[in-house]
Every structure is written in structure tokens, then in C-alpha cells.
Design a protein around this nucleic acid. Sequence first.
RNA 1: GGGCCUGUAGCUCAGUCAGGUAGAGCGUCGGGCUUUUAACCCGAUGGUCGCGGGUUCGAACCCCGUCGGGCCCGCCA
Length: 530
Amino acid sequence: MHWSDVVAQRLSERGQKHIVSTGITPSGEFHIGHLREILTGDMIAKAAKKAGLDVEFVFIVDSADPLRKVYSFLDDSYSTYIGHQLKQIPPPNAEGRPDMERFDQGISYADHFLEPFRQALEQIDVRPRFIDNYEAYADGNFAETARIACNNADKIREIIERVSSRELSDDWFPWNPIDSKGSIDGIRVTGWNDPIVSWIDAEGNEGTSDVTKGEGKLPWRIDWPAKWAWIGVTMEPFGKDHGAAGGSYDTGKEIVELFGKAAPVDLTYEWISLRGQGAMSSSSGNTIGPLEALSLVPPEILRYLVASTKPNKAIEFDTGMGLVNLADEFERTTARDFSIEMQKEGLSRRQTVAIEDAKTALELSLISPLEETSKVTFRHLAMLAQTKSNDEDVWNSLGLAGNVAQSMIDRLDRMRTWIQSRHFPDELRITILEEPDVEAVGRLDGENLAILPTLVEALEACEWDASSIQSTISNAAKSRDMSPRHAYRALYLCIMGAERGPRLPTILTELDQSTIVNLLRACLEESVEP
RNA sequence: GGGCCUGUAGCUCAGUCAGGUAGAGCGUCGGGCUUUUAACCCGAUGGUCGCGGGUUCGAACCCCGUCGGGCCCGCCA
């Protein structure tokens, strides 16, 4: 059974109506690691729907969280905003400075980072109900839970200290009020008179905060279960940081009972890291953003990456050959006929499960109907995109002329972007030698050497277009009673230094005829001199 | 100190939750495709399942131990 179906089954054991929730703090650039959180939730919601459950998928934007520190991409002037809620501070401009102009237009720091992520979500066909946490506080959605928390401060303190074996300071209180300057840092609660918290801030100013009106926020370990309670969350996937023993899920599932609710079904997922570069980190700039990833690969591939990997498995995102292999695996999967595979006799349980999982992973990945996708592999398209500068030539080669689906046009655009990017693997890059590669020439065998002089002469004389070059090569081989592949091997070794390569004639037409002939001549000379 | 994940073919991994003759893709090698030669088709190659014990008729799988890799436990989501 696919992992999403396993979760759906757990949900159906609990009841008919469900809310699957995900959430992210917009404190900086979103990256593909965040995509795992929301795709995991999306896929569980889809599986629950398939199982006949009444399910809603929500995405909470934690815009009530404070700015923790001046991140590396921010200007030092942001230090005045530390402790201020992300919805209440200006977005950074290109230099990382506060952009007051946009802030005046109503765009906050949180909005600034959320917007590109929203666009990416649309592209990958994830359409949750968005909940802005800051607004939820302002609208009074946390009123009840906040009052319960404050009235049960001792119980909550006991839970957190026991479960997380952490000691809370004497003046700890389950509410972070906002001080006279808009910060929730360095402020101390001095009294509680339901529903009013009194406080004194770092500069000695005193004031009060109404917990039912969002004049502050609940600390994270209470904020989370409070969200479960007011939204009615019954399932939530979360990163392994929350899942550790004594972590916020462990304390949350006890705290939520004070609110009269049960903890949601949990699922801990592993991180996505970048191959060879370790964990993704916004501060070090070591990230791939969702939009950047989507500029390289179709959304289906990103969905497939998450769908085909069990959540507890760490993913190493590889923008080079790994991406090619992933994409080609996806293409092969789309071509499979699962119903025929399942009818095969003598399947072990293991094989049956593998087929079912592949089928489900594919279903969860597809955005448009299968008919619209093409069978062309990434490798093949990479070759075509490099050898044909004109899109029409690519469609002709694929036999799609005059009837090109939008998804194919997108794929070619992405491929061209990828080829020009730093991510494109050398292994797929087509290189033409400028002078003979001595080592490669040394690998020419007797038949290669025999055909080479004939080839050089024929190519020098032939018309320089794809079909002429092709027949010239074939005829040269036939004239000496040998298979064309000997001729091709000779050419690949001389022109590219490899025994095989992409289809030659089309590449040669993009190159200068005399340059190629001269290169071949030079190889010929190299080969006769021992 | 507490906890989680992980170790299976050259590479990426599935298989571990319900023990039953070790799997897939890629790679490599060979053949075919006698003009789509990084495509496609066929075949082959390839693993003491990290290590040591235990349970069992039978263990990659369950139990104990051990070694290696990654990670989480600061009001930080």
C-alpha cells in the first residue's frame, strides 16, 4: 500500500470528516524542502478523498511569528524589527533593506516571501485553503484557547517541563504580549486577569494585552495545539524537528486535551537536502527555490519525487544526472500498463505491492491527463534541444509537427533553461573536439581505420545537410561491405572523443563542414603515426 | 545525556510494519535495429543484504549487541 493510503486508512479508522493541515513560517526564501511539507499534506488529502472521506486541506502561514534575527540576506537595519511579527514589518528590497514603499501598499515581510511560493503551489497543482495566522489572532480565532492556556498556565508549564524535560523560567507565561514598540521579545508578564495580561517591557514600559484580540501570540508549543483546536485539524505532517521525543508534537498532544480536542494523526517526514551540499539553508544561500526547480523540470516530476519516496526517507535533490534519471523513471512509469502487470500470474506479495505503489505514485504526480504527455525521455530531449536551435526542428524530429501540446512546449522551454544553467550535467553536454584526442584516436579499431579515409573524402564532397550527411555515411560503409556502425564509431571517436553519441547528422549540419573535415584529416594522420 | 532515521548490485533505491528461493532502474558487457547510433528491442553481468550473536524448520525482515553515516532535542519553527 502506498504511504498516502496507509495514512488515509488510519484516518478512516478515526472518523469520516478530516482536516489535513500544513504550515510554514515565511521568515525567508522558501525552498524545495518546504515543498515536501505541503506536497505530503496534499497527497494525504487526495488519498483520504479517494478513500471516501470528507477532507479539507489547509495551509497555515505563520505570519504571527516574530523575526528571529537579522538573516544574512537582510540589511543590518532589520535589527530594529527583531521580535516583531512578520506580518507587521516591511518586506526587504533587492538590497535587503526595508522597502517602505511596498510596505505602504500593504505588502508585508510575510507576504513578500509567501507570494513566490503561492505561484509555485499553483504550478504544482496544490490548492489548499490558506490561513493567515496573524489574521486568525486578530479575528479572535485564538480567543478561547488563549484564555484556557492562561487560566491553566501551571498545567501547561508542568506538561512542557515534564515531557520535554526542559526547565522554564519563573516568569514564564503562556502568552507573548506585544510591547510598546511592537516586539514580543524581552517582555515580562506581570499579571493575568482574564482576558487581560499585564506586562512590563525591556525599557520598563508597562501595558496590557487582551488575549482574545490578538494583542500578542501564544508561544509556539501552545500556538500549535491551539491551531489544531480552533481549525479542527485531524492530520498533520511535520518535519523531523518537531517529531523528536519531547518535541513540540509530544507536548502539543497533551496540551490540546486542555482545549478539549484530540491530537491529530501525525506523520514525520525527513528533510530534502541538496546532493553534495548538505542540508538546505536559507542563510547560506544553499537552496533551490520552488520556482527555480520548476524552471528546470515539469511540476509532475517534483510531485513524483515526493510521491515515490516514503516520507521517512531523506531525499537528496540532485539537479544534475539525478534529475535526468528521475525524469526518465517518471516517463517510463507513465508508459506502464498496471492492469496488465497485475494480471500476471505468480506475483509475490512484494511484487504486487511494488506495482500498486508505482501506480499510486504516478496518480498522485499527474496534473494533466496522461494523453497529453509525451513519451520522449529527458535524455532524448536534452540532445534535441542542444542540436536544434529551432523549436520547429525539434517537433519535426519527434513527429509532432503541427500538433504540439502546451505541455511539450513547456518542457522544451525548461530544457533550454536547464541546459544554460549551472545545473546541467557535463555527461549530457555535447562537446565537439577542436583537435584530435590522441587517446580516443588510439581506440580506433581495424575497421574504423579502414573506413576513415573513405569517410573523409565522402564528407568533403557531400552536400552539408542532414539527410545527405546521413546517406553519405551509410553509403561509405556499404561501399566497403560493413555495417554503418563502424563508420559511426570512427566519427564519434574523432569528433567527440567517445565511442557513442547522439545522432550525428543533425549535429554536423550545425557545424562548419571544412572544420569537421580538417579534424578528421588530423585524426587520420595521428592514427598512422604510431 | 535522550531520541529518530539510515547501511541491500559499480550508482540510486525497493523489499523490513503480515519471516518463505535476494529485486528494479541506471551503469557495464554482448547482440539486434543493414540511414532516427546518448533512441529503441533482446540477452548477459553483477550482492558474505554493515558486523556478531539469538529466536525459528526457515531471517535482509523479529530480538539483543556492535560498528559506520545523517539528523533532531536552545520560546526554534
